[in-house]
Structures are given as C-alpha cells and as structure tokens.
C-alpha cells in the first residue's frame, strides 16, 4: 500500500508541475517546475526497480541540462516575457488537439494495455548489469554517441562563439 501512496503522490507532482511548465509565462518558474517534475520521474524509476536510472536521471537532467536552461534564461534575462496572443484560433486548436490526444491515449492504454502482474524473477537493473550489457551488445552505439556529443560541443561553440573576424572596423557584425 505504501508503494501505491508514493506512486500517486509523485505522479500528481509530476503532472501538476508539468502543467506549470507549459502554462506559466515566466520561463524561470517553468524551468524550476520542470526540475521538480523530473525529480518525480526519478522516483518513478526507483519504483520500477531501476535506482541506477533514477540517479542518472537526476544527475543528467537536473544536474546538467536544466542548469543549462536556467543559465541561458538568466543570461538572456527573459523574465518579463509576455506572449502576445496572436492567432488565438490556432492556440485553441492546439489545446483541443492535445487534450483529445491525451484522452484517446489514456482510454486505449486503460482498455488494452493490461499486462500480467508480478515477474517470476526479480528485475535486476544495477550498474553492473547495465554496464555489462552496454559494453557487450551496444559498444558501437556507445562510441557513436560519444562522437555525437563531440559534434554537439563543436556545434554549440560555432553557433555562440563570437569570433573577431566577423566584426568589421565599425564594430558592426557582418551577417
């Protein structure tokens, strides 16, 4: 019973703070709410017997990605962001479509995704098991991801780095 209590509490936390992310107009509040939502998801991973993934979720998302978001939002000083409601029809269509999508998805999952309960053997997903599987079967994708990350670093530097050659004598940036 205790498990179910944790599940419902953190499921509610995840959904409510996810709603804050998309409804609040202040991006800083949105980013912090997303962190809370991700934390609730990490609790879900613990409930799913994958504590290693839960720790990774917090370290990668809360510790790196969301700090980067917060850093950029603060750097650009986006706190007084007001969205002029141009195209209200499209916006309402967006709300309508996504809620219809949600309702149908939940309906069909509730109706058809009924799966058998307890596993015959305990699900072991510790660091050792994951590492073994990763470096045996997934070594090529692993190396590919490392190249992807390198490409991302170079790309990010190219996009944001302001080099001296691109400015002419009057200080105006050549576009």
């Amino acid at each position: 019973m205790f498990e179910y209590l944790i599940f419902f509490f953190f499921a509610a936390v995840a959904v409510i703070f996810a709603l804050v992310v998309i409804l609040h107009r202040n991006p800083v509040v949105g980013a912090l709410s997303l962190v809370v939502s991700f934390f609730a998801l990490a609790v879900m991973y613990v409930l799913l017997d994958a504590p290693f993934m839960a720790a990774l979720q917090i370290i990668v998302y809360s510790g790196a990605i969301m700090v980067l978001f917060l850093f950029v939002i603060m750097l650009l000083n986006l706190q007084h962001e007001k969205e002029p409601s141009t195209r209200p029809v499209q916006q309402w269509l967006g709300y309508l479509t996504s809620s219809a999508f949600a309702i149908s998805l939940v309906y069909y999952l509730g109706k058809y995704a009924v799966m058998s309960g307890a596993l015959p053997v305990p699900f072991i997903a510790d660091a050792r098991a994951i590492g073994r599987r990763m470096f045996e079967a997934y070594i090529f994708p692993f190396e590919a991801v490392s190249i992807l990350l390198l490409a991302a670093i170079v790309g990010a530097l190219m996009l944001t780095g302001r080099s001296e050659q691109r400015e002419n004598t009057s200080g105006e940036v050549i576009r």
Partner: peptide
C-alpha cells in the same frame, strides 16, 4: 501518456 500530451500541448500552444 499524460506527461507526453502535456508536452505536446506546450509545443503546440
């Protein structure tokens, strides 16, 4: 599914 739909809603609106 609910979280995914919330994300879709955010992207659309």
């Amino acid at each position: 599914a609910i979280l995914f739909s919330i994300g879709v809603c955010g992207v659309l609106t």
